[in-house]
Simulated scan of single mutants.
Amino acid sequence: MQIKPSVLITGASSGIGATYANRFAKRGHSLVLVARNKSRLETLASSLRQENDINVDILQADLTQPEDIAKIETRLQADRKIEILVNNAGAGLAGNFEQQSLDDITQLIILNSLTVVRLARAISPRLVEKGSGAIINVGSVVGLVPEFGQTVYGATKAFVLYLSQGLSFELLPKGVYVQAVLPAATRTEIWERAGADLNNLPPLMDVGELVDAALVGFDRKEAISIPPLPDISQWDSYQAARLAMIPGFANNHAAKRYLEG
């Protein structure tokens, strides 16, 4: 029987991360679960081992701290059984841009963007060497909609989307699949942690439905999966419009509209 690769999941103690852990466990994958809350990780790991007869390791880490990020990088570099990385850990930030503290903004950027890059960089050389494996980066539709007013959070998620597209362009020809998952509002603890008013939230997608849809996209090898989007032709049109602009970027003179008085 072929042994399935191990999956490392960040932000695995609750919400989307815990649901990914449950789904991959049911598929027979051994897991490495990463989060700050050790007691939650232990409880989840125990139930997954018992229900699915798999190996589950836990790594307590705060992925805003350099030494903890380095610890997960080391595991990704050294553990050749890990061939799937789920970059899920993330946070939101309440309030308007001018009201948010610089420290909070910095921590958000580290967690939502820098850590995603560092962990993807840690595992990708091994995956390229093997010619297989996958990186799943959990972003957000907010990264496409500055009109939502979540400026820094949205910017970090736009970064995750661009990073995923760039990695897909570079790594897919070498056998490594990269998927960006773009949820909309989903029923997780991120809202309360960000200080959001729960009475003013939009309708929320069930986290199980989100992850199940994202895994359908994963099985289909979609580069970008947007579970809440009803009409995928809208995304296709968006992509086509973006690609149509590329030749114009090569012009070595300013466009005519800038040369007219």
Results as ranks from 00 to 15, higher is better:
Q2C: 06
P5E: 03
V7G: 10
T10E: 13
A12V: 06
T19K: 14
N22D: 14
R27N: 13
G28I: 09
H29E: 01
L31H: 05
V32F: 12
A35H: 00
R36Y: 08
K38P: 00
L41Q: 05
S46F: 03
N52M: 08
D53T: 09
D68H: 13
I69T: 06
A78R: 00
L93P: 01
E98L: 06
L108H: 00
L111K: 12
L114P: 05
V117N: 12
A120H: 04
A122H: 05
A122V: 07
R126I: 08
L127H: 10
E129H: 13
E129G: 15
I136G: 10
G139T: 03
S140P: 12
G149F: 00
G149K: 08
T156Q: 01
K157W: 03
Q165D: 03
P173K: 07
P173L: 09
G175Q: 15
V176P: 11
Y177D: 13
A180Y: 05
V181Y: 15
A184V: 09
A185W: 04
A196I: 01
D197L: 02
L198M: 06
L198H: 05
L201H: 10
L201V: 08
P203W: 12
D206L: 13
L210E: 07
V211W: 07
A213R: 11
A223S: 14
A223W: 07
P227C: 14
P230C: 06
S237R: 05
L243T: 11
A244L: 04
P247V: 10
G248R: 11
N251Q: 12
G261W: 13
